[in-house]
């Protein structure tokens, strides 16, 4: 990415976003990318007067990361979406759908909603 990217850890992510908010940045969204079987990248995208800036948080899947919804209320939707799709938990969500924002029981157990994996499992079952 050509824009500036700052690396953060689960300990500093909330204070760092608070800092961004004080500087007058608007939260665009969060993106979550699977790196390998155990780790995820969560990118926080911010915008100020059309300039983008990103925070990058690399986190293990099985550990909860702190939610930034207490700083930016708008992040609750996307954090719930990431919970749905990637199985990682956000701690301190203001409105927690508990992995039911999009998904019903039938698909919730698909490992991170991967199409390739779920098709493999279907074949195994047959």
């Amino acid at each position: 990415m050509k824009e500036k990217v700052i690396s953060v850890t689960p300990e500093t992510v909330v204070s760092q976003t608070l800092d961004m908010k004080k500087k007058g940045y608007r939260l665009v969204t969060l993106s979550c990318v699977e790196l390998d079987a155990d780790t995820l990248d969560i990118l926080y995208h911010f915008d100020k007067d059309l300039d983008l800036m990103h925070l990058r948080l690399t986190a293990p899947k099985n550990k909860a990361v702190p939610s930034i919804s207490s700083v930016y209320f708008a992040s609750f939707l996307v954090e719930n979406e990431i919970q749905d799709q990637f199985g990682i938990r956000f701690e301190g969500l203001v409105l927690d759908y508990d992995r039911t924002l999009y998904l019903e029981e039938e698909v919730r157990d698909a490992p991170c909603c991967r199409i390739a994996v779920s098709e493999e499992e279907k074949n195994k079952g047959e």
Partner: peptide
């Protein structure tokens, strides 16, 4: 592609 993430305007307009 590894990942495609789409943030659409209505998604941003629901909290408002």
């Amino acid at each position: 592609l590894d990942r495609l993430r789409i943030r659409t305007p209505t998604f941003a307009n629901i909290p408002p």
